[in-house]
Amino acid sequence: MTALVRYSLSMLVRSQGYIAPFVLFGSAVVVLTTNDFGPIAGTYSACALIQFVCMLWFTVAIVNTEDRTQRSLTVVAAGGQRRVLVANVLAATVVCVGLSAVGLVYPIYAGTHDVAPADLAVGALAQLTCGFAGTAAGLLCSRLVIPKAGYAVFASLAAIGVMTMVRPVPPVGPVMALLSSATAPDRMLGPVAAMGALSVVMLVASVLVAELIVRQQD
């Protein structure tokens, strides 16, 4: 599995599909958090939002690096469609963890905040939660599930709109609403962790749905 994950990441680098979402993430984090002050949980809310959008984009880029023929060869060599899908998800998780580290640390040095351990825990959980949700959505918007690029773009925009603008839709909306509220960080940990668990369930479900759709297409 390690070799498959490294292969997925290397294909992403070779395709240069990482450049646009990486630039978007870096630009948004810098613009939204530099010289910011006040409760850092609110700042982490902005980082979590951009994490969701960028991880959707990164996941689509990872899955779409191979055309149908190349992916068929990879599936045969790897021993099954599920193993390749899991490797794609793990590669996206590596990217998600890296972006979360940047989104967690940069606002502290670029703004003026009183930071407690609970703030860091909530910020990390929130960004990972939104990142996993973005990965789940990206997998379902990839070429495996939606072969036509135009439809995939509309599906991606719809997913971003619904999950970020409709606040009751979990897990992104509730996490953003909670971090933007006046709730104490230590009281946020439980609800944010629950949303994190939900995002993992969504990610597992998206892998199973994508695998089922690919099998039906074959």
Rank of each mutant, 00 (worst) to 15 (best):
C54G: 02
A28H: 08
I40K: 07
L49Y: 00
V31Q: 01
Y44P: 10
G134F: 01
R71V: 02
A78K: 01
A87R: 01
Q81D: 12
C47K: 04
V105E: 08
G103E: 08
A101P: 10
F132E: 14
A91N: 11
V84I: 13
V89Q: 12
F25L: 15
C130I: 06
R71N: 10
Y18V: 09
V23D: 13
T43A: 15
T93I: 14
P107C: 06
V60N: 04
P117S: 01
A118K: 00
T129E: 11
V29K: 10
G42I: 11
V75S: 15
G26P: 14
A46R: 07
L85V: 02
S100P: 04
V29F: 15
V60P: 05
V63N: 05
A101I: 14
Q127L: 09
D114W: 03
A61T: 00
G123E: 06
V95W: 03
D36K: 13
P39V: 07
G38S: 08
Q51G: 02
S45V: 03
T33R: 11
G38E: 06
V89G: 14
P21R: 12
V23I: 13
N35I: 07
V115Q: 02
P39R: 11
A121H: 03
V76K: 09
C96F: 12
L90Q: 12
T135Q: 12
L56G: 02
V60T: 13
V89A: 09
E66S: 09
T59H: 04
T129I: 10
Q70T: 00
L125V: 08
T34A: 15
L99Q: 10
A20L: 12
I62N: 08
